[in-house]
Amino acid sequence: MTMLEIKNLHVELEEENKKILKGVDLTVETGKVHAIMGPNGSGKSTLSYVLSGRDGYEVTDGSATLEGEDILDMDPEERAAAGMFLAFQYPVEIPGVGNMTFLRTALNAQRKARGEPEVSSADFLKMVRAKAKDLQIDADMLKRPVNVGFSGGEKKRNEILQMAMLEPKMCILDETDSGLDVDAMKLVAQGVNALRDEGRAFLVITHYQRLLDHIQPDVVHIMSDGRIVKTGGPELALEVEKNGYGDLLAEGA
C-alpha cells in the first residue's frame, strides 16, 4: 500500500513569487523508511512544511496524497488527525503553555477528530511518563512550557516524544539529528525504531549518514534545487557522506 504519494509538486512562496519546489515526485510505501538528503536550500524543509500545511506557500501544480486522500486542501489539524506528523527542524517555543497540557490537548483533539474516545488523564499520565522515560526526558521538562528553556537536543527529543504519543502514520523528521550528541542521537533513533511497523512510514530528512546508521532507510533520495534528482538504496547515503553532492549532482544533471 502507498502511504504518501507526491506527484509533480510545484510550490512557490506566496509573498515573493519565488519558485522553491519544481516538480517533486516521491512515493513512500507503507512500512518503509525513506531518507531525503540534499544541499542546503534545496527545498527539503519546504517540502515538509507544504505536506503538513503551513501557510505562505502556493501549490501551483501537482498533488500530494496520504493513503490515497488529497491532503493539500486540508487544514494542518486535519492532516494531523489523518496521520501526518512533522518533527520540526526548529521546534517552536510556546511560553505559558505547559508541555503536558499541549500534548494532551493535541492527542485528544486528534482522537476526537477521528471519532475515537478521549484518553483519561490517568491513562495519559501513565503513557507520557513511560514514553518520556524511554527518551530520558525528565518529569521536570514535561512540566515546563513547551520547549521553553530546552536545549537544542532536548527540543529534538521532545519532538520524538510527541511523535511517540500521537502515533502518526506518516512521520516526517526534518533534521532531527542536527544538534544531537551521540547518546541523544541513539535515543532518538530508538524512538523512531520503536515506532517502525507495517502500518507506518517515515521520511527522514538529514545531512548525515550517522543517523541512518541507527535508522536503516529502505530508500534514499537526493534533492537538489526543488527536485528529487536521484533515488537509490542505503548506499546512496554512504556515497554522499564520502564524496559530497558534487559528483551525484553532476551525474543527475
Binding site: 489539524e77 494531523a80 488527525a81 521546534p91 511560553p95 503553555v97 499541549f102 490537548t105 493535541a106
Partner: peptide, 27 residues
C-alpha cells in the same frame, strides 16, 4: 509559527488560538 506548530499536532485552530491567548496572559 506557534499557531502552526500547535495545529500541526492536531489542535484545531480556535483552540490553538485560545492556548496562545492564555500563554500571552500567563505572565
Amino acid at each position: 509559527d506557534a499557531l502552526f506548530y500547535l495545529r500541526s499536532r492536531g489542535v484545531p485552530k480556535p483552540r490553538a488560538e485560545d492556548l496562545l491567548v492564555l500563554s500571552f496572559l500567563a505572565e
